[in-house]
């Protein structure tokens, strides 16, 4: 398949209802941090962009939302033209200009504070990070609490960024500024909004 075909194929089969379904899963995940929201396959993007991350991008991004790609995605011209064709989102010049960031290899990603944190007046002007992870059970368990969580929740995402717990604590301390994270596996998503606190697990 040539690059043009790859860039054009694999979008939403039904743009209106697929986008709604994906958004509702993201909304529910954002409202209930740490809770897994199953998501069927809606897109077939070129690798290394995953179907779930691709679906989230198609549901939320457009020409009003500069998008930042991590080096692994940046390296693929097909991924860039696929996203360009289906969303129209411009690529952000720097992570700090991005409304959304797509990260294919979170373990190697730059620090969270390199993205837009929003301002004290407009904390909503921050980057939402979409992290592709292989699963939400095989990594180091994270015990979560905060709004959206009745008592506590636990997820164990694999291949998370380096020093994630420490970085996340700093993200909490910047509140109301800070980034929000959507974790995307091949069949589900889970969210970590900036209000979610990671409790240290006592050994």
């Amino acid at each position: 398949m040539d690059i043009v075909t790859q860039a054009i194929e694999g979008g939403f089969a039904d743009p209106v209802f697929d986008a709604q379904t994906v958004f509702r899963a993201v909304m529910d995940a954002m409202a209930r941090p740490g809770k897994l929201q199953p998501l069927p396959v809606f897109t077939r993007p070129p690798t290394p962009l995953s179907a779930t991350a691709g679906a989230i991008a198609l549901a939320l991004c457009d020409n009003d939302t500069p998008l930042w790609l991590d080096p692994a995605l940046q390296a693929s011209a097909t991924v860039k033209s696929w996203l360009g064709f289906h969303t129209g989102a411009p690529l952000a010049n720097t992570p700090a200009d991005a409304h959304f960031a797509l990260i294919a290899t979170p373990a190697e990603m730059m620090a969270l504070d390199g993205f837009s944190q929003g301002t004290q007046d407009y904390p909503d002007r921050s980057t939402t990070l979409i992290l592709e992870v292989s699963d939400l059970v095989s990594g180091a368990p994270l015990l979560l609490e905060g709004p959206g969580i009745e008592k506590t929740a636990t997820i164990a995402p694999a291949q998370m960024p380096r020093h994630f717990v420490e970085q996340w604590k700093q993200n909490n301390q910047r509140f109301p500024r800070g980034v929000d994270i959507i974790l995307a596996t091949s069949e589900a998503i889970a969210c970590l909004p900036r209000t979610t606190r990671i409790k240290t697990m006592e050994a």
Partner: peptide, 24 residues
């Protein structure tokens, strides 16, 4: 239209992430 829905959906997600803050 779908573009408007996306814009509102993004605002809703920010609102959920910053409870009580009014997202323009």
């Amino acid at each position: 239209d779908e573009q408007t829905k996306r814009m509102i959906r993004r605002a809703i997600l920010k609102g959920i992430a910053i409870p009580g803050y009014q997202v323009p």
